[in-house]
């Protein structure tokens, strides 16, 4: 059977299509709607009162911690993917191949355990 198998042109066509839709929406919105912007209308929305202080204030460090943890764990997941793809070969190698995988997974579990012990994902109850 003659099957064209990898054809990535469609992705670019889809990108162009989506861009046209977005661009069209911007265009239509810009030129069909009224445009009378002044004073209080373009103030930041704070439920009607005059905004106080800056929006870009100090934030909870928890968000930063979540970002760091995401990097680490997503990297580990990315490392596990080739292992998963090579699983048939690892099985063919026998007990050594599977122990190697197990070694990696045990480290993964240990890191999760450490993360819990360190209280990294504890969000204090309100």
């Amino acid at each position: 059977m003659n099957t064209p198998d990898t054809n990535l042109l469609g992705i670019f066509v889809m990108f162009a299509f989506a861009s046209v839709v977005v661009g069209g929406a911007f265009f239509v919105g810009r030129f069909l709607g009224p445009r009378r912007l002044f004073g209080p209308k373009i103030m930041s929305y704070e439920c009607g009162i005059t905004p106080t202080g800056e929006a870009r204030d100090r934030l909870s460090v928890k968000y930063y911690l979540v970002a760091i943890l995401f990097l680490l764990f997503d990297l580990e997941a990315a490392f596990l993917l080739p292992v998963a793809l090579a699983w048939p070969q690892l099985k063919a190698v026998g007990i050594v191949g599977m122990l190697t995988t197990l070694f990696f997974l045990v480290f993964f579990v240990l890191s999760i355990w450490y993360e819990y012990r360190a209280g990294a994902v504890e969000w204090e109850p309100s």
């Binding site: 919105g29 069909l32 709607g33 009224p34 912007l37 373009i42 930041s44």
Partner: peptide, 10 residues
């Protein structure tokens, strides 16, 4: 489509 588009000053 016919609504005004608001862009905050800040």
């Amino acid at each position: 489509v016919f609504k005004e588009e608001n862009v905050p000053a800040k």
